[in-house]
């Protein structure tokens, strides 16, 4: 019986401590939020700096990610080889060549774009219709688009062999493999990704320092208040808590601000982007990022805010003692 009573008492004390801690947290959260709203202008300026610093690398990353995603959608056609025939070759000769080449094992299919339909398409999309009318004859050659047979062990070397074979055909003027620009794009995209990583890290550090410095300044400004708090029995944890929440709020609102900026940028870019994509005959549309992306952006921002706050209050608060 005695034991039961004792354990109940301990349980009660635990609950009381938990309630007390919850109350402290609630108080610190609301108190720090109130402080931010009271200095609305300077808080907004800080938030804008954080928001921009986060939106910049995050937005660039999304854009690059989107671009490589779009390109990878073209992958199935990516290995296509464009074979431009010589100007004087007529359509029957081209078709004969098509039949002849189809015998090869390393060619899967061949599609002919004859010079007249090519001209028509060019007239339609290039905007040079007037200039093209001034020409006496069609300057475009016939074009064979060759889909090589690709399987898992086909290498770039096989492709190069095929290219070589095509080049030696007497009817052929120019052979172009589309993978070249794809590879280049991939390389550029890799550089871009690293550049964004560097930029993101630097701006992340900047956010950390901005939040850290803002909070450090606040600690300095509230020196007297901290002393009095400690004088009447506040622990270092109690005094520190509102500052950590300040960091949390800066991170949260800065992240939301960054999110708004990115949304605005996507909205602003979506129409011209659509136009560009339609020129590439792509039916992709510029989509808004999903929940995981937003969670990552806002979560990362909150994390930076917390780290910045810890950086600022770490040893500093412990040293402020009443005298």
């Amino acid at each position: 019986m005695k034991k039961l009573k004792a354990s109940r008492r301990i349980g009660g004390k635990h609950r009381w401590n938990a309630n007390k801690l919850l109350l402290h947290h609630l108080h610190a959260a609301i108190f720090s939020l109130g402080r931010l709203s009271r200095n609305a202008l300077s808080s907004l300026l800080t938030l804008a700096v954080i928001g921009i610093a986060i939106a910049l690398p995050a937005g660039l990353y999304l854009l690059l990610n989107y671009a490589s995603h779009s390109v990878s959608n073209w992958d199935e056609n990516s290995a296509a080889i464009s074979v431009f025939l010589r100007q004087e070759i007529d359509l029957p000769t081209a078709q004969a060549l098509q039949q002849k080449l189809l015998q090869r094992a390393d060619i899967n299919s061949i599609h002919i774009i004859d010079k007249d339909s090519a001209m028509q398409e060019f007239r339609q999309f290039s905007g040079f219709a007037g200039a093209l009318d001034a020409l006496d004859s069609n300057p475009l050659p016939h074009l064979l688009i060759i889909q090589p047979t690709l399987n898992e062990d086909s290498s770039t070397q096989d492709l190069q062999q095929l290219e070589q074979a095509l080049r030696t055909q007497p009817e052929v003027d120019l052979v172009q493999i589309d993978t070249a620009w794809l590879q280049r794009f991939q390389a550029i995209s890799n550089i871009g990704q690293r550049a964004i990583l560097v930029l993101g890290s630097l701006l992340g550090i900047a956010v950390l320092l901005v939040i850290g410095n803002t909070i450090r300044l606040e600690v300095y400004n509230r020196h007297e208040e901290i002393e009095i708090m400690k004088l009447v029995g506040a622990t270092t944890a109690f005094v520190r808590r509102p500052f950590l929440y300040t960091g949390l709020w800066y991170g949260l609102f800065g992240g939301l601000f960054a999110m708004a900026l990115i949304l605005l940028a996507i909205f602003w870019l979506s129409q011209p982007m659509q136009q560009l994509l339609s020129l590439y005959n792509s039916d992709l549309i510029l989509s808004y990022p999903g929940l995981p992306t937003w969670t990552a952006i806002v979560g990362g921002s909150i994390l930076l805010g917390q780290c910045g706050a810890w950086l600022a209050v770490g040893q500093h608060l412990r040293k402020i003692e009443p005298s």
């Binding site: 007297e224 208040e225 002393e227 400690k230 004088l231 029995g233 622990t235 270092t236 109690f238």
Partner: peptide, 22 residues
């Protein structure tokens, strides 16, 4: 130490000549 110092201070009321009000 630490928390115990804080608890002690909350059990001792202090009044100053310069009031120390916020």
């Amino acid at each position: 130490k630490g928390k115990a110092i804080a608890r002690h201070r909350s059990r001792v009321g202090m009044i100053f000549q310069d009031h120390r009000l916020l």
